[in-house]
């Protein structure tokens, strides 16, 4: 099953719509609640990042019988130092991001903790792609 969502820069009101919709789908598929929570928490953090730190982008989701693959691909500005960004507590979040309850530099580390596979690639001036995979069993 393939799903696609568009996320828009600065659109905090709709941040989480993609994750919420994926949650509904996985519920219908009777995915274990603990696994479901890991999936949606990781996707939500990635979605918030595309809205908060980037110029928006796309969320692509592929679900099969034993796993879910999620790709959050944005349109830039890119991450100059991915290793720095992956460290807990590291953040460049603007005040409005902090007002939303984010911006403590916990997003990428939390994605890492929740998914079975995480791959972050980025090119400055082009964009960032976050690929995540979670096995259902």
């Amino acid at each position: 099953m393939h799903q696609e969502y568009t996320v828009i820069e600065g659109d905090f009101v709709n941040a989480g719509k993609a994750s919420s919709s994926v949650k509904k789908t996985l519920k219908q598929l009777n995915v274990n609640p603990q696994v479901l929570k890991r999936v949606v928490v990781a996707l939500y953090e990635a979605e918030v990042n595309a809205i908060a730190h980037a110029y928006g982008g796309k969320v692509l989701v592929d679900i099969d019988a034993d796993k879910i693959k999620m790709v959050v691909a944005d349109k830039g500005p890119g991450i100059p130092d991915i290793a720095w960004a992956m460290e807990e507590g590291h953040s460049t979040a603007r005040p409005e991001v902090r007002d939303m309850g984010f911006g403590a530099g916990m997003g990428l580390p939390n994605m890492q903790k929740n998914v079975d596979k995480l791959n972050v690639t980025s090119e400055v001036g082009v964009g960032t792609t976050v690929e995540m995979e979670v096995n259902f069993h």
């Binding site: 009101v13 609640p33 309850g101």
Partner: peptide
């Protein structure tokens, strides 16, 4: 003390 839509979304994600 955070009272906005993101509070509710976060609760949704975190069950």
């Amino acid at each position: 003390g955070l009272c906005n839509v993101q509070t509710i979304r976060t609760c949704d994600m975190a069950s």
